[in-house]
């Protein structure tokens, strides 16, 4: 187990390095510079600014500088927001983004699994059709459409929830709903189909033959096996929620990392682009790692290391 974790950590570092390098190449190959839009600045000012931010150096030196700053966890100052460091921005944005992401994932997983189980147990019944119809809607409506519809109906027309920003639980309802619906629908459909398959297995019949109560059979015998595929797609879903949160944060004016991320690209704010990319990448890589570990805990047949036969 320990060897597996160490190996995974090494692979994670390599992955991160590849992401950093690719981001850097993309960043410098996109035309424009942080100072292009500043109409007031003349050529001398621009040259001075470039010098100040090391942008006059050859690309490989810039690249090494970036690697160095990442290794020391100091991403330097933001270019478009001169009095703030990238670390400040991340420190301020991350807790909010994290809150939004975690709540959305929790909502998606819990409601998705419950919906899936109910649909499977009422297989081909009205509840099943209703739940699956809802799931199809959830999958097919993009979150930015859903978000605007929610704002229009629930916030503007009916005034039940606040329109935007992030300050109280009531503010969280709409963005979380918009962000969680897609993943929830995917989880619900997957849980339903694997649950239906698991329920026909011999070991379920065996559990019934033991005289166990239906709930014990579902929770203890069926659900655990049915959740394997759900765990498998959790990594992808987390990535989806992450990228979804850029858009949702923008729509609901939530001051999270996503907002800085999108802004930084528009402003060619290189340190912020690098900082947010690295941060998101680390987060996603760690989540994928946790998913793999969870997989091994749920299914005893998965071994993290080779150690003789059985």
């Amino acid at each position: 187990m320990l060897r597996y974790i160490l190996k995974r950590l090494a692979i994670m570092l390599v992955t991160l390095w590849i992401i950093i390098t690719l981001t850097f190449i993309l960043m410098v190959s996109v035309p424009g510079s942080p100072f292009n839009s500043e109409s007031s600045s003349n050529e001398i000012v621009q040259a001075n600014l470039n010098k100040h931010y090391n942008l006059d150096q050859p690309k490989y030196i810039q690249y090494l500088e970036y690697i160095k700053s990442i290794a020391t966890f100091d991403f330097g100052p933001s270019i478009s927001k001169p009095h703030q460091s990238v670390n400040d921005l991340l420190g301020r944005g991350f807790p909010i983004s994290f809150e939004l992401g975690i709540i959305s994932i929790a909502v998606a997983v819990l409601s998705g699994i419950i919906l899936g189980i109910i649909a499977a147990l009422r297989h081909n019944g009205i509840i099943d059709y209703l739940a699956m119809g809802l799931a199809v809607l959830g999958i097919s409506i993009p979150n930015f459409i859903l978000a605007t519809l929610l704002i229009q109906q629930l916030a503007v027309n009916w005034e039940i929830f606040p329109v935007a920003t992030w300050s109280s639980p009531a503010h969280m309802v709409l963005p979380v709903f918009a962000l969680a619906t897609g993943p929830m629908a995917i989880i619900a459909r997957l849980t339903r189909s694997t649950m239906l398959e698991v329920l026909t297995q011999d070991y379920i019949k065996m559990a019934r033959a033991k005289g166990l109560s239906p709930w014990k059979i579902i929770i203890k015998h069926a659900l655990r096996n049915a959740l394997m595929p759900v765990i498998t797609i959790m990594g992808t879903l987390v990535a989806g929620v992450l990228t979804g949160s850029f858009v949702i944060e923008k729509i609901f004016a939530i001051p999270g990392m996503g907002k800085y991320f999108v802004e930084s690209i528009n402003h060619r704010d290189y340190p912020v682009i690098m900082g947010t990319t690295v941060f998101y990448s680390v987060f996603l890589i760690v989540m994928l790692f946790l998913v793999d570990i969870a997989y091994g805990i749920l299914d005893p047949r998965i071994k993290f290391h080779k150690k003789g036969g059985d």
């Binding site: 297995q201 011999d202 070991y203 019949k205 065996m206 559990a207 019934r208 033959a209 033991k210 005289g211 166990l212 015998h221 655990r224 096996n225 749920l298 299914d299 005893p300 047949r301």
Partner: peptide
């Protein structure tokens, strides 16, 4: 079930819960 009457299934490879 399981108390007065018990049952043994055909395929032992699938009759036990793998988890």
């Amino acid at each position: 079930r399981g108390v007065d009457i018990s049952m043994i299934f055909q395929d032992p490879m699938t009759a036990l819960n793998p988890t």
